[in-house]
Simulated assay, not measured.
Amino acid sequence: MSSIKLRDVSVQFRDGTFGLESIDIDVNPEEFVALIGPSGSGKTTMLRTIAGFVQPTSGSVHIGGNDMTHVLPENRRMGMVFQQHAVWPHMTVAKNVGYPLARRGEKKASISSRVDRVLALVGLDGFGSRKPASLSGGQRQRVALARAIVADPAVLLLDEALSALDEPLRDALRRELVALTRREGLTTVHVTHDRAEAMSIADRIVVLDNGQIQQVAPPAELLKTPATADVARFIADATVLSGTVRHGRVECTDLDYSWSLSAVRAVDSVVEGDSVDIAITPDTISIGPAHHPDYTFAEITSVLYQVSSYSVTAKTPAGMSFRTSMDYSKPEIGETIGLAFENPFVYRAG
């Protein structure tokens, strides 16, 4: 069981830009942590810094209580699985999986027994003599996973490891991965661009943007209380609008709409005169008649079926788009509806 500690870690590139800036985080032993954020937010840079492929400009990386900041990747006792499974086509499955053990000079009998064990763990019992060309994409990814854990790593690092797989195979392997990491007691850090995947498998989620941590929280807390308007936008598909606090109300300057301070979720303390960001999430939007005076007029611009409801995007005449859901008969693009906004998140601007 190993923890991961990053202390004031920054990575500055040659052009002066920061891939990571003042990162502080603890990953607990046996915890499954997902790194998410927009493209270029620093997810992969952070993972590669933990792995040792990127040297921090400042700060330190500790694994299992040991300072690994300047230790070579191969000496960090880490297993890593990438988006492209990268199994060697000329080797059998068993030789692919056993390669890390053979490389460090372990005896053939020991390698064979450990390879058999991990192949059984990843659902490939009896596949040892087969060549990768005879396997499906999901099976080859299982081979890569088996190779990553065969040498009893202290930490498992996953870099978009499931994104190349098709559903429902991806969902099945996702479930197996969570069960495997729990069973083997692995501390796991998983980079993914898939928000739903992060929500479904992680104990905690790290939201990154511009090389900085925006929030670290369990999935339910992240949805319940996004720390910033940008997190609300990225995690919960919020529409973020500008506003001002006046006479005990939050007045939206982008809409003809206002709320009493008691009717909003003020994440930051706000006072009279403050400029604020208002994050309106899909679950806080009610739908009513298009021309009712209590509703904001909008036109449906997109419709997606989501099993128990329809996800719709509706645009106001002023050009602001809102995401919400409708659980009755299929709405049509071009249909007009009314929108009411209740209990938005409010943040101090700037």
Rank of each mutant, 00 (worst) to 15 (best):
A266K: 05
G319F: 06
S308T: 14
S10D: 06
R348P: 10
R174K: 14
K95G: 07
P293E: 09
A349G: 01
V87Q: 11
P218I: 01
D254P: 08
N75L: 11
S129C: 04
D254Y: 00
A298N: 11
D159R: 04
P56F: 03
M78H: 06
R117N: 04
L222A: 09
L186R: 13
V267Q: 04
L241C: 03
L119F: 01
I337G: 15
H62T: 10
P293N: 12
V150Q: 13
I280S: 04
E332C: 09
P89L: 01
T45H: 10
E74L: 10
L222R: 05
V191M: 14
M91G: 14
E332L: 12
V93C: 14
V87M: 06
G16C: 09
R174A: 10
P218A: 04
E31V: 05
E221I: 07
I333F: 03
S112I: 02
G137L: 01
E184G: 14
V250W: 01
L304P: 13
D166R: 07
F297Y: 10
N75D: 12
G42E: 00
A340T: 14
E184T: 13
P100I: 00
G243F: 02
L186Y: 12
T281R: 12
T92H: 13
V240M: 01
I205H: 06
P168S: 06
V115Q: 05
A133I: 08
P38F: 00
A144T: 11
S286T: 15
A51K: 08
E31G: 14
F82W: 12
V303T: 10
Q215M: 00
M326F: 08
V250M: 02
D230S: 15
S22V: 13
S321T: 03
V178N: 07
S129F: 05
I285D: 04
R204T: 12
A238Y: 03
L255M: 12
P282A: 00
K224M: 13
R182K: 15
G123H: 05
R104N: 09
K315E: 12
R233C: 07
D152L: 09
H90M: 03
V206L: 07
Q139E: 08
H70Y: 05
R103L: 14
T244G: 00
V61E: 11
L255Y: 04
I4D: 06
F234R: 15
K131P: 08
Y295R: 04
G334R: 07
M91A: 13
G19W: 02
T324M: 01
M326D: 13
V81K: 15
D254L: 01
T57L: 06
D125T: 12
M78K: 04
T281L: 09
L255Q: 09
P331R: 00
R76P: 06
T239L: 02
S309T: 08
E184P: 15
T301V: 13
R323V: 08
S3Q: 13
G105K: 11
A120V: 02
